[in-house]
């Protein structure tokens, strides 16, 4: 079975222009009320400073996986095409003369391998790996605590801006599976109609504390500030993808962290397709206006990104630093 949560919102758009469902109304997470979960970054942060926290989208972690399955499938479908042509095409004259013993098999076989050799790559591109290639490397979300706005980088490269106070946070469930994630809805003026939906990057069972951990992490930043978050950040948490493409090593590491050593050969293949997917994708750039609104002071003590890792920021502030500092990959 497909891990459906991974594709919700990317392969299959979220349902919008609809009223909130009963399940979405309860539970609702309010920005002023702690959810009760332990705030955790869970590989979410791209960069942080006193003005904004930039977070990754949920599609980043498994980018490239569908490329691998699609590539394997396309290769096999073309091998099928060659095999079919080798055995069926020489029989066409016999079919036309009426001397072929199995004419239906010949005609059906040619149609099958041709349709499949064209149809499978089309389907795989249109609905699966095409969502990873020639798009954006990731779709960041920026939480600005100074002007209390949230900026979502849409799949088409435009930006959705919404007031933090008006954001509707709730749990969303996968279409066919007991998998949940925190969804952030942008509502219409009526406070009931969902205009746009975005999801945080951790999915699990409803009882999994990780599901709410990222929401609590973001809420803490917006409501209490970066000083609460810095001790929670580790060097490994920071993705170095803000202004450059992810390295092969980092991509492999992220996939390996999710699938484990048991799947190492497949993870390696997926890392290759991930690497090439990243190469074909554009790095998301925020519009000038957003950058202006998110400007932060030079020498911000809470500035953390791939250039200034959390350990460095913590050391500068005299906070305790973990002994083992993670090397950049």
């Amino acid at each position: 079975m497909m891990d459906t949560m991974e594709v919700e919102g990317l392969h299959r758009p979220f349902k919008v222009d609809r009223p909130l469902t009963a399940q979405e109304k309860n539970p609702r997470f309010y920005i002023k009320e702690p959810s009760g979960a332990e705030p955790l970054n869970l590989l979410g942060t791209l960069r942080m400073n006193s003005t904004y926290l930039e977070f990754r989208d949920k599609f980043l972690m498994r980018k490239g996986e569908w490329g691998m399955w699609s590539a394997i499938g396309v290769t096999l479908s073309w091998v099928m095409f060659v095999v079919g042509m080798v055995f069926f095409v020489p029989a066409i004259p016999d079919v036309l003369n009426g001397t072929e013993r199995e004419p239906i098999a010949v005609v059906f076989g040619i149609l099958l391998v041709t349709a499949f050799a064209i149809g499978f790559p089309w389907f795989a591109w249109r609905y699966r790996c095409g969502k990873d290639f020639f798009r954006y490397t990731h779709y960041p979300i920026r939480f600005n605590r100074r002007n209390r706005k949230v900026y979502f980088f849409r799949l088409d490269g435009t930006v959705c801006v919404v007031d933090w106070e008006k954001l509707y946070a709730t749990l969303g469930k996968a279409k066919d599976g007991d998998v949940w994630e925190v969804r952030l809805h942008v509502l219409a003026e009526d406070g009931e109609t969902v205009l746009e939906t975005y999801a945080l990057g951790y999915a699990g069972k409803a009882t999994d504390p990780g599901v709410l951990a990222q929401w609590e992490f973001i809420r803490l930043y917006m409501e209490e500030g970066p000083e609460k978050l810095l001790p929670l950040l580790e060097d490994i948490d920071i993705h170095d993808i803000v202004d450059r493409r992810e390295t092969f090593g980092r991509g492999f590491k992220l996939l390996e962290m999710q699938f484990g050593f048991v799947m190492a050969p497949l993870v390696f293949l997926a890392a290759i397709t991930r690497h090439y997917a990243m190469k074909t994708c554009k790095i998301p750039r925020w519009p000038e206006e957003v950058e202006r609104e998110c400007a932060f002071a030079e020498g911000d003590p809470y500035e953390v990104d791939a250039r200034r890792l959390p350990s460095e920021a913590k050391a500068a502030l005299g906070l305790p630093v973990e002994e083992e500092v993670y090397r950049r990959v």
């Binding site: 497909m2 459906t4 699609s70 499938g73 499949f116 499978f120 795989a124 699966r128 066919d176």
Partner: peptide
């Protein structure tokens, strides 16, 4: 092959 990319 189709099952590789199919779901549900």
């Amino acid at each position: 092959i189709a099952m590789l990319v199919a779901g549900g």
